[in-house]
Design a protein around this nucleic acid. Structure first.
Length: 452
DNA sequence: TCTGGGGTCCTAGGACCC
DNA sequence: TCTGGGGTCCTAGGACCC
């Protein structure tokens, strides 16, 4: 049996924990660069504000309706998420952190042990909901069902129907059938815009309809094996297990960092500075989960909303590192520069850039065998290994300094712009704005709330 | 003037190998 | 005239998720 815990309007809820005056008022959170709406309170939803609405388009309405507007504050949200996940981890046997605001719970076998002492899974789910709120201030809903897809579906019903008290357990075939009938097919986990359109055109309107299609039909029209699994899961046959997140952290298979620039850029040096900064950040995350990367992708994008710009809006270049996996920022940056040159079209105005690290593996899984001269295939030359390993000690010092004195205290020279006239910090041309960012209430001593 | 960022999984064609 | 088949790796891209 699976549980799904999903935080309600998570980013808004994080702000409200430390600013109770926001309770009961419409609140929205904006994306990076204050671009568009990415989280809304119930009151903001009721005003018709939509996920993804560009700020500049709804600015007037926000003002008219006295909506409280915030820039996103990922330091705060990340820390609040950690607290929620920590509590869940201490409460049930297995937790899979699915996103910043969602976690699957392994509840298998719990019911039979639970019932005599503590009641059924509905009671447990209810205790979890109350417990998270009491310990973190974050409201959540909990769905419980025999498959992940049905747990998601139960969660969404629990969110929508206030009468359920924030919890729904699909404990019988009858209840499952009822739940499937309540949910439009486009709201099923795994059905996006394209598939929803295709499905409704075929007369499949609800989750219940989708649960009735044949395996062959699902394979043909819903992306092959993915579609087949989706339908099975709706029918109550689990196709996906729980992948517990060890010690409350999420281990990634790829790590990326990208940004829309604060202003359009057309100088190679400016974009290279951005790419270097993004890659520094990505490599930092890579080392934090104690991995090395074997594959590097760089991409640059034009403005897809501009009427005078033709597709393709984005070009990418991927390289399997000839030297094997590395976690050294300097090694990665030297390859990234070459990839960027390959993509670069002089005279083009760029809007966004990004990097992706793939092929992650912990240090010493493959390349170290070769150090001892094993006859493994694809073995690197000694020189290549030395290049790939780089200077782990240097990287460790870099991370330690930035951890202690703040992100970006020590950077690669190529990420730094020509010195400003005075000794004052200037924003890099690729950096955007965050005009309404709340304090880092939980992670900066200077930002601690003062209670009188 | 102003339109996010970070992930997952799957497919498919070409290169290359035996 | 006529030219195999299967596997893996690399790379790019599409669909989906929050």
């Amino acid at each position: 049996m699976f549980g799904l815990v999903d935080c309600n309007n998570f980013y808004v809820s994080c702000e409200r924990v430390f600013q109770p005056r926001l309770e009961g008022r419409p609140v929205v959170i904006l994306s990076n660069n204050d671009g568009c709406i990415i989280s809304r309170s119930a009151e903001a939803k009721a005003l018709g504000l939509k996920m993804g609405d560009p700020y500049f388009q709804v600015k007037e309405q926000l003002r008219r309706d006295s909506v409280q507007v915030f820039s996103s504050n990922y330091t705060l949200y990340g820390d609040m998420s950690r607290r929620v996940m920590h509590y869940l981890g201490a409460t049930v046997p297995g937790v899979e952190i699915y996103s910043i605001d969602e976690a699957f719970l392994d509840l298998s076998g719990l019911e039979q042990h639970l019932t005599p002492y503590l009641g059924n899974l509905t009671d447990l789910a209810q205790r979890i909901r109350v417990g998270v709120k009491a310990r973190t201030g974050i409201p959540v809903c909990v769905g419980v069902a025999p498959t992940k897809t049905l747990a998601k579906l139960a969660n969404r019903l629990a969110k929508k129907d206030a009468g359920l008290g924030g919890v729904l357990y699909l404990d019988s075939a009858r209840r499952r059938a009822w739940a499937l009938g309540q949910v439009p097919v486009g709201d099923v986990w795994g059905v996006g815009r394209q598939y929803a359109q295709k499905l409704t055109a075929a007369g499949i309107d609800s989750a219940a309809d989708l649960a009735r299609v044949s395996d062959a039909w699902a394979r043909k029209h819903l992306g092959g094996v993915v579609g087949a699994r989706l339908v099975q899961e709706l029918q109550g046959r689990p196709c996906a297990g729980l992948h517990p997140s060890e010690d409350g952290t999420l281990r990634r298979q790829s790590i990326s960092c990208s940004r829309t620039f604060g202003q359009p850029l057309s100088a190679f040096a400016d974009v290279l500075a951005a790419v270097t900064a993004f890659l520094s950040r990505a490599a930092e995350k890579l080392r934090r989960q104690d991995d090395m990367a074997h594959v590097l992708t760089v991409y640059i994008s034009k403005n897809r909303f501009a009427t005078n710009v033709l597709p393709p809006f984005s070009r990418s270049a991927t390289l399997t590192l000839p030297i094997g996996p590395t976690a050294d920022t300097r090694v990665l940056v030297s390859y990234a520069r070459a990839l960027l040159r390959r993509l670069w079209e002089p005279g083009t105005v760029y809007h966004k850039a990004g990097v992706v690290l793939d092929g992650l593996e912990p240090p010493g899984t493959g390349q170290q065998l070769d150090l001892f001269g094993s006859s493994a295939p694809n073995q690197n030359t000694r020189e290549e290994e030395v290049l790939a390993v780089g200077r782990p000690d240097l990287m460790a010092s870099l991370d330690a300094l930035n951890q202690r004195f703040g992100r970006g205290t020590v950077r690669l020279a190529s990420a730094v712009l020509p010195p400003a006239p005075q000794d004052k910090a200037v924003r890099a041309p690729w950096e955007g704005q965050a005009r309404w960012r709340s304090p880092a209430f939980t992670t900066r001593l200077e930002d601690l709330l003062i209670v009188r």
